[in-house]
């Protein structure tokens, strides 16, 4: 997924997303840019009913996921009310509109149950 750039520490290998000037583990300053790839594992999630300004939906599912190459990120889960979401399940990750600001779509990580 070229839209997301994560940063792998060239010294200890820790993966950072978003960007840091120094590694959170070893303080090293050089990173290899990497892009997340493939499906993701759902680490945690919530269904939010009291949404912030800018969202007209009745609810949103939001989760934190991990890609196969170790990149962890937050994203919206595209699932109906009452969806059978479980920790550890595999989701498909796509780059799609996640909100609209001034009539313009804002793109982000959209996560979809497989099958």
């Amino acid at each position: 997924m070229k839209e997301i750039t994560a940063y792998k520490c060239k010294k200890c290998g820790r993966i950072h997303y978003p960007k840091h000037e120094r590694c959170l583990t070893c303080k090293h300053r050089e990173f290899e840019p990497i892009h997340p790839e493939g499906n993701v594992k759902l680490l945690t999630f919530t269904q939010i009913f009291n949404l912030p300004w800018g969202f007209d939906e009745r609810f949103l599912y939001i989760g934190v996921v991990q890609f196969a190459n170790g990149v962890k990120a937050m994203g919206q889960i595209d699932a109906p009310d009452g969806a059978d979401l479980r920790l550890g399940m595999t989701l498909k990750a796509e780059w799609e509109p996640v909100r609209t600001v001034f009539d313009e779509p804002v793109y982000g990580l959209k996560l979809k149950p497989l099958g």
Binding site: T44, F45, T46, I48, N50, P52, I62, R99
Partner: peptide
């Protein structure tokens, strides 16, 4: 985080919900 969290519509109750799910487990 303005790029990696806020755009998705995450709220502080939402953060707490994700934390609670893990803490319960």
């Amino acid at each position: 985080h303005p790029e990696t969290e806020y755009p998705y519509g995450i709220t502080l109750p939402g953060m707490a919900g994700m934390f609670t799910r893990l803490y319960m487990e």
